[in-house]
Computed example of a mutant assay.
Amino acid sequence: MNRRGAPITRYTHRIASALRRAAEEDQSHMTLTRLVDVLGARAHRVLLLVVSLFNMIPGPPGYGGTIAFTTCAIAVAMLMDRPIRFPGIIGRRKLPLDLMIKASDKIVQVAAILARFSRPRLRWLTAAAANTPYGMLVIAVSLVMALPVPFINAIPNVGLCIIAFSMLNRDGVGVIVGLVATAIGLVIAAAILFGAFHLGTAALGMVRQA
C-alpha cells in the first residue's frame, strides 16, 4: 500500500488540519468539548488516539487525571454507540492550542513512519465488532492511569497509543503488539502500587512503634 494512502495517514492529516483551522480563529486555548466538536462527536477512535497522545505531553497538576477521565468518557460513549458528551468539569478543561498543533504535527510524522511497517491485516481485530472489547480495555486502563501515582501511566499509555494507531490503520498485528505493551505496563503499574503499599505499611508500622 502507498504510504500516502494508508488510513492512519489520512486520519492524522485530518487531525492536524482541524486544529490549524481552529487556530485561525485566533484562539489560544481549546476546551475538550470544542475538540470533540472539531473532530466529530462520533469519531471515537480518532479521539482516543488524540487523547492518548496528549497524555504523553507533560502538563500541570491534575492534567494526567483529566486526560485519563477524558479517555474513559470517550470509551464509554463508544461502547454505548453514542455521541461523545463530556461532563462540564471535563469539557471545560482548556488545552493550549499551539501545543496541540505541535503535537499533531508530530503525530503526522510518526504516522508516516508507522505506515512503512503497518498495513491492513487481520482486519477482524479492528472491525466494528472490536469496539466492545476495545472500549472495555480502554476504560480499565484509563482508570488505572487516573491514580495519582508517578510514572504509573507511561507504559500502559504507550500500549493504548499503539492500539489506537493500529485500529485506525486496520492493522490487527499492531493491535496485538499494543495489547502486549499494555499488559506489560499494567504489570509494572501493579508492581509499583504493591511496592507503594508495602512501603506505606512499613512506614506506618515504624510510626506506631516509635
Rank of each mutant, 00 (worst) to 15 (best):
Arg3Ser: 11
Gly5Pro: 00
Gly5Cys: 04
Gly5Lys: 12
Pro7Asn: 11
Ile8Ser: 07
Thr9Ile: 14
Tyr11Phe: 10
Arg14Thr: 11
Arg14Asn: 11
Ile15Arg: 01
Ala18Cys: 04
Leu19Thr: 08
Arg21Val: 07
Ala22Thr: 13
Ala23Gly: 02
Glu25Val: 08
Gln27Phe: 07
His29Asp: 15
Thr31Asn: 08
Arg34Pro: 08
Gly40Ala: 11
Ala41Thr: 15
Leu48Trp: 04
Leu49Asp: 05
Leu49Gln: 05
Leu49Met: 14
Ser52Tyr: 00
Leu53Gln: 12
Ile57Trp: 10
Pro58Gly: 02
Pro60Lys: 13
Ile67Phe: 07
Ala68Asn: 01
Ala68Tyr: 01
Cys72Ser: 13
Met78Glu: 06
Leu79Ala: 06
Met80Pro: 00
Arg85Cys: 07
Arg85Leu: 10
Pro87Ala: 05
Gly88Asn: 12
Lys94Asp: 05
Leu95Ile: 14
Asp98Gly: 13
Asp98Ala: 14
Ala103Gln: 14
Val110Gln: 09
Val110Cys: 06
Ala111Asp: 04
Ala112His: 07
Leu114Ala: 11
Pro120Asn: 03
Pro120Asp: 03
Ala128Glu: 12
Ala129Lys: 10
Pro133Ser: 10
Tyr134Asn: 13
Ala140Trp: 04
Val144Glu: 03
Val144Arg: 02
Val149Lys: 01
Ala154Leu: 15
Ile155Thr: 10
Val158Arg: 00
Gly159Tyr: 04
Ile162Tyr: 01
Ile162Ala: 05
Ile163Cys: 01
Ala164Cys: 06
Ser166Cys: 10
Leu168Gln: 07
Arg170Leu: 09
Val180Ile: 15
Ile184Ala: 03
Ile184Thr: 03
Ala191Phe: 04
Ile192Lys: 05
Leu193Ala: 10
Leu193Asp: 03
Gly195Thr: 03
Gly195Asp: 06
Ala196Arg: 09
Ala196Asp: 07
Ala202Arg: 08
Ala203Val: 03
Leu204Asp: 01
Ala210Ser: 09
